[in-house]
Amino acid sequence: MSPPRLTGALRSFSNVSKKEDITEQLYDLKTKRLKRQELFAREGLTWQKIVHFCTEHQDKAKHQAVSQELKSLLLAAKQIVGTEHGQEVIESAAVFLFETFHNKDHVGTEETRAIKQMFGPFASSAAEASCACVARLLAPLEDSRVEDFIQIQSSRHKSQRGSTFGRNIAFSYDSYTVDPLEDLPWSGLQEGNMNLEF
């Protein structure tokens, strides 16, 4: 809980602020995650593009194996997002996992955090399975080709349009700290305490 503040009193007792209904808790993490998934699904890379990319550079003889890996990746994605979701959501989650693991050989802290932020708590076995699937899918392909594909298709990896406001502003992280008067020595306190003993 925040300590008592002047501005808290001003908000409560003056009429210069908007009166908020503090009981309203509309924006929880679950809603936020769903919104992020929705926004991610609208970004450039799609499941169809991944399927095409993974099969186009492979011998036809290997298509069966590729198809199996892709199915496994979808299955892992389904385990992560939950079984109640439709095909579209599962494919979008598989795209996310593909992007997350395309240059990783294991599930690290960053990847775990990214998946949790997108989908909430998940089974680690599903993340490990998807990481392994992506590794097997991309093993026959050149790294640079994979990187190019991700860079071109995924808007997450594109640099943000225009310039970000305030990018060049020198910002200071300094904050006010306790700055006592020099002439109010702490040592005087000891005397006060000693007097109390009597």
Binding site: L6, L10, S14, V16, S17, F171, S172, D174, Y176
Partner: peptide, 17 residues
């Protein structure tokens, strides 16, 4: 912006900005 927000901005960011 309102007066309490402006006061908060001053105490949070004012030291170095």
């Amino acid at each position: 912006f309102d007066i309490p927000k402006i006061l908060d901005l001053c105490v949070l960011f004012g030291k170095g900005n």
